[in-house]
Design a protein around this nucleic acid. Sequence first.
DNA 1: CCGCAGAGTGTACGGTCGGTCGTATGGAGA
DNA 2: TCTCCATACGACCGACCGTACACTCTGCGG
Lengths: 203, 203
Amino acid sequence: MGLGGEAGITDGRLLRGARTRELVLRHAVDLASLEGLDNLSFGRLATESGHSKAGIQTLFKNKEALQLATLGYARRMFIDAVIRPAGSKPHGVARLRALLERWSEYATAPLFAGGCYRAANLPDFDSRPGPIRDELLRHQEEWTGTIEAELRHAVAAGEIADLDAGLAAFQIDALLCAANTALRMGDDDAVNKVHRIVEGILR
Amino acid sequence: MGLGGEAGITDGRLLRGARTRELVLRHAVDLASLEGLDNLSFGRLATESGHSKAGIQTLFKNKEALQLATLGYARRMFIDAVIRPAGSKPHGVARLRALLERWSEYATAPLFAGGCYRAANLPDFDSRPGPIRDELLRHQEEWTGTIEAELRHAVAAGEIADLDAGLAAFQIDALLCAANTALRMGDDDAVNKVHRIVEGILR
DNA sequence: CCGCAGAGTGTACGGTCGGTCGTATGGAGA
DNA sequence: TCTCCATACGACCGACCGTACACTCTGCGG
């Protein structure tokens, strides 16, 4: 297992690095969802992972690279927790419902300590151009793209009435993000709200 | 004019304080919408406003007090720009449309340099209990509450079909927040998207 | 065996942060 | 006039930040 891509590594040195890199990233991803990507710091990650600050820095060159690595790891966790499991369902409303179901668990249960990493960090970086914003936007479009694709399948199969798939995907993602922060604020009914509204959209 | 509440002050000392306080808050509000409330700093505000760091600190005691003052000032700006102008329209869909129209301008034009201050900071503080989160939640409920009230008026007057006003308000606010970050990411069509979806909700 | 390379450590540097002193200025009120 | 008080300032503190440099250790390839 492991999301670090350490599968094909035979070199013991690189493998050791990949292991601690993943161990650190596991903490970093929680911190990023709790307090934001730019509240990550080498010193803090070092203390909480039992390594030295300089050691962490050799693994992730500079802070921006650390942030990008954290983003990549979070994306892989997201795919494993939400997108891949839904892949067993057939295209259309079935897979769409599976995606939303997995997303609800993903946003509720402590996969990330602070909820969805995208919803937590996109508003932070939407006014700061740069590689991190670009990467976040890429993840965002990847997610809304999957929703939109399943909506198109559903329409093509006649499972739901004809609609603007792109517009509906935008709408659904907006609901999910709002539900994510509502959950953090103690609104336990947020998931139910999304469920009701989306069922209304699917008629 | 002025949002600092310096209207009834006759004491020259307090009046001078209120003036620079407002001058500083004007900068603080832009910074808070651009980079978040906790990226505010006394030193930076001091440099950009031409005062000394200690001088700013005497005006706002704590950093937390500075953040709360900034939140309060942003709220007053929001009310002046969005809620009050719509007050001239009659209750129901008319005022609701006016609210959304003003909100679109509010999120597009540079009233706040980084867009809606609430949408920018709520995801930041949703996992950090404390007075700032509480205040943000209060503003949020105040806003969704006004939307919900107009929806109820519209239903009662028979202007729109019967619906769950609370649920619809949650939905509309979700769309507005999503549109706000979409605007920052360069999606010029975001406002139009919201318009189309909301018109669908109002049938 | 040798030399290279990556992981990991220790140390230091310059900078910014929030916060706290002591103090000076200048209006308000006695 | 004298006292009080809020504004405003400069200097300073300890903490943390990101970064850089000079190491040691260890496993790989020639």
